[in-house]
Amino acid sequence: MAEPETNGNEKLIVVDRLTRRYGRVTAVDDVSFDVRAGEIVGLLGPNGAGKSTIMRVLSGYLPPTRGKASIAGWDVVTDSLNARRALGYLPEQFALYRDMRVYDYLKYRARLKGLRGRKCRNRVVEMLTVCNLEQTADHCIGALSRGYWQRVGLADTLIHDPPVLILDEPGLGLDPNQLGQLRRILTESGAHRAVLFSSHGLAEIERICGRVLIMNNGRIVAVDTPGRLIERWRGYTRFMVEASGDISAFLQACRQIKNVATVTVETGDPWNRLRIEADKDADIGSKLFEQAVRTGCVLREFRREQDHLDEVFAAMTAPVNQEVG
């Protein structure tokens, strides 16, 4: 898994002991983290964990109840206008003017964000290309599909070339091809920016992000690279084996290997599927192979199962919370 990329080590997003309450409900509780230039950080958490609230506070839309947050060094409360100038923000429920054409909308937003004249026009054309919107530039936004709306939103977010991007569920409503394009745009644009984005697509987060923040009940319960989080939370090593032959002898031999915890089998004719779980970090692969040869079993498949971020996510955000680091 990719390590955090850093270009210049400048902290472009800083959240310091941030708390946000809605009446009596604490949506974000004493949260601190930072995102450096060149870093793409994924914000994960179940619905209601506080992800969107943090993003709304960072965007200047909501004031924090307590604590501080800054964008590119500008405080989001006291220097809100400068902070918003340095920020490209895509809200979760991104709304657009349905009566406008895509080109006109992007031009309007570019002008609102300070671009003028030829630079403004060039940038709009560039964003239409980057976000694959050239064919729909003259289309009325109201007539576009959800996927195109997201792309228009993304183009709007990038149009003033901000050093900080905050994207709340940018993949919502996109098909797999569009998700691939989004991944490409984020990876390319994130090279010199600080990017914070939330998603329920854990595979996307795992692929794109150098670092992941997992939130639950308004607090951060884990911060690390996806790879290290998986390592930390994996409780066992699992092998999947498909074999035929004297399965009962092979099963017996497997159970006697040191560190093997459980062996389960789904019998079939002639291929049987075995699931072998051993202690965390136990390297039993070669021993399993040896036993298969010794008992005369023929192997069709032999693989070590990789854990994914979704298992870590499920473990950390289960109803009974396990709070860590």
Binding site: R84, P91, Q93, F94, A95, L96, G114
Partner: peptide, 13 residues
């Protein structure tokens, strides 16, 4: 429509 959030998060007062 949610446009208000889009407008309020732009660099305008």
């Amino acid at each position: 429509t949610g446009i208000l959030e889009t407008v309020l998060t732009a660099p305008v007062t």
